[in-house]
């Protein structure tokens, strides 16, 4: 379904990072945002990247995005330490699109997920988060219906007024494959952006690779010495489950388990 072609939709993309190899890649959520944008307006989608346009990692990943069938990606070239939320705001202040699609959070850096919120706040437009789809857009009333992902595969329907920022959830449809031929032929339109402001907040941060978080032990708040002793020496319960050979009885047991787990 392709909506009104006059609809102005911008998707923001970033450089992702593979969790295991650390290699640059399409950011998973951004690629989904792009997929959603392409579904909505196909060729009229605008795609924007802010970062260092000249780094080889950037170029290779942006090509991967281009491979999804884009004619071009706008690139705002800013230095590495720049605060991109500021740049973004400057970019959109004059000309606010109808819908700004983003991923939930970046795959590297601070990864706070604040960009869409800051944009929405400063442009004074609403933000809907974790969406999986935009069901309808009514240009007359200026309202759109979107689906929001809830835990366990549930969905909530939300009506939101245009223009708005939407962050796309991992539960949204998977992005299409990036085709090498399209990637090579797509264009990166680079604009220098000199008004960038450095992100001073990060200066005193220390970044290390993630430590394993200690697993929480079951702490026994024993009130008596006996309880404490038992807790320290007792074998861990469980392991082998219950085995039932009678079909009637087992049906009852399964039913009980399902009810205990609130599955019915």
């Amino acid at each position: 379904m392709i909506f009104d072609p006059s609809l102005n939709i911008v998707t923001l993309v970033s450089i992702g990072e593979h969790p295991l190899s650390g290699r640059p890649r399409r950011a998973e959520q951004d690629a989904r945002a792009l997929e959603l944008g392409l579904k909505l307006v196909a060729d009229n989608l605008q795609v924007l990247y802010i970062g260092q346009a000249k780094s080889p990692a950037t170029v290779s990943v942006l090509k991967d995005y281009l491979g999804m069938g884009l004619g071009q990606i706008q690139v705002l070239d800013v230095p590495p330490q720049a605060d991109i939320s500021n740049t973004l705001l400057e970019n959109f202040k004059a000309n606010c699109p109808d819908i700004i699609l983003t991923g939930g959070r970046a795959e590297n850096g601070e990864s706070s997920g604040m960009i869409p919120y800051l944009l929405a706040e400063q442009l004074n437009i609403p933000i809907v988060t974790s969406i999986t789809d935009i069901v309808s857009i009514d240009m007359l009333t200026g309202l759109a219906e979107v689906l929001q992902a809830l835990p366990r595969g549930q969905r909530r329907k939300i009506k939101v007024s245009l223009p708005f920022v939407a962050s796309v959830d991992m539960a949204a449809p998977a992005p299409r494959q990036s085709a090498y031929g399209c990637a090579m032929r797509g264009q990166l339109v680079v604009k220098d952006f000199n008004q960038s402001i450095d992100d001073v907040g990060q200066r005193h941060w220390q970044v290390n690779s993630a430590q394993m978080r200690p697993k929480r032990l079951k702490i026994v708040k024993a009130k008596t010495a006996a309880d404490r002793f038992k807790a320290a020496t007792a074998k861990i319960q469980g392991g082998s489950g219950k085995v039932i050979y009678d079909s009637k009885e087992s049906a009852q047991e399964i039913f009980k388990l399902l009810r205990d787990e609130e599955m019915l």
Partner: peptide
């Protein structure tokens, strides 16, 4: 694959993995 980007099944995923991890299963 290279022009239409329509490798079926798990093809797209496997090719992505090959590009990001050099092995088809993303280890």
């Amino acid at each position: 694959t290279m022009e239409k980007g329509k490798t079926p099944g798990k093809g797209a995923e496997v090719l992505d993995n090959l590009n990001t991890t050099d092995n088809p299963n993303g280890h």
